[in-house]
Design a binder for these strands. Structure first.
Length: 272
DNA sequence: AAGACGAAAGTGGTTGA
DNA sequence: TCAACAACTTTCGTCTT
């Protein structure tokens, strides 16, 4: 729906040839989004110190230093731009393949900028960081995707995405709540083609479970899957454990265990 | 034949000494 | 840093529909 117009930034970056330095300055322009405090303050500090040292030692030296400083700044911003150019196009590709709405992609892009400016990408693969940013952005927007779902469209594996994600969260001091199983119910339900009624029923079950503390420490996807399974039985549009497990990317065994737990602790009667 | 059930052993990530 | 631990998976045999 909103997806047709995804290319305000995209096309500019994509046609990027290694030979042409000039274009880079134009690339810098569209970033109306903020540069954040940390990167900025660091830059200013450096400059001040350099200028101080130079003033004392004479005008010619001052000029030379100023030149060097400029070169250095250019090199750095150039490197950042290169990184961003590649990363943001990759982010956009993945985002649209996953089907993420615009606002989530913007959050991801913002996170990535912060990551680059804070030097978080140095030893790591850009792909991994981009994937991690997308994963984090989904969670921030309360529309979580599983690591498996991100992995499907990423060139790096789940493990590395997870690692980069944890690193990102730690270094940027992101405070993210554990994902709420309810956030998975609608999406899983849609994939299964169950009715609205069943989805709502599943959400009620999940909320009850949360209230009774049955969810802490458990995988949210398993809970969501089991809730949908139960709801489908109660609403008379039975899904199989297999089907539910598949969309939630858990095993049938997990669905069964959660199912048993929920039915039993919430006193749910299953129609025979 | 397909779905549901559950036991048993294995895996990867978190936690606490 | 290492070992214990819980959640989850894999595998597989057995009921039930």
């Amino acid at each position: 729906m909103l997806d047709e117009e995804i290319m305000d930034l995209g096309p500019e970056w994509r046609a990027f040839e290694p030979g042409q330095r000039e274009k880079r300055s134009r690339v810098g322009a569209p970033e109306t989004v903020m540069l954040h405090d940390k990167g900025l303050s660091t830059d200013i500090d450096w400059r001040n110190r350099d200028i101080h040292g130079n003033d004392i030692s004479g005008t010619t030296r001052a000029k030379m230093y100023r030149l060097r400083m400029w070169q250095r700044r250019m090199r750095i911003s150039d490197a950042i731009d290169r990184n961003l150019a590649f990363a943001l196009s990759e982010l956009d590709r993945m985002g649209s393949q996953i089907g993420l709405p615009r606002n989530i992609r913007e959050i991801a892009a913002l996170l990535y900028r912060k990551a680059v400016i804070n030097r978080l990408v140095r030893g790591r693969s850009i792909e991994g960081m981009v994937s991690a940013c997308l994963y984090a952005a989904c969670r921030i927007a309360n529309a979580p995707r599983t690591l498996d779902e991100i992995e499907d469209f990423s060139k790096v594996d789940k493990k590395e995405i997870g690692r980069s994600y944890r690193y990102l969260v730690r270094e940027l001091n992101l405070k993210l709540r554990p994902t709420n199983p309810v956030d998975y119910v609608v999406r899983f339900g849609d994939q299964l083609g169950v009715t609205e009624k069943t989805k709502r029923r599943a959400m009620r079950i999940v909320n009850q479970a949360i209230k009774m503390g049955l969810t802490s420490g458990k995988g949210p996807t398993g809970i969501a899957a089991a809730a949908i399974y139960i709801a489908s039985l109660l609403e008379g549009e039975k899904m199989t454990q297999r089907e539910v497990a598949e969309v939630a990317r858990v095993t049938e065994v997990t669905v069964r265990n959660r199912y048993k737990e929920l039915v039993d602790k919430l006193n749910i009667r299953i129609p025979t």
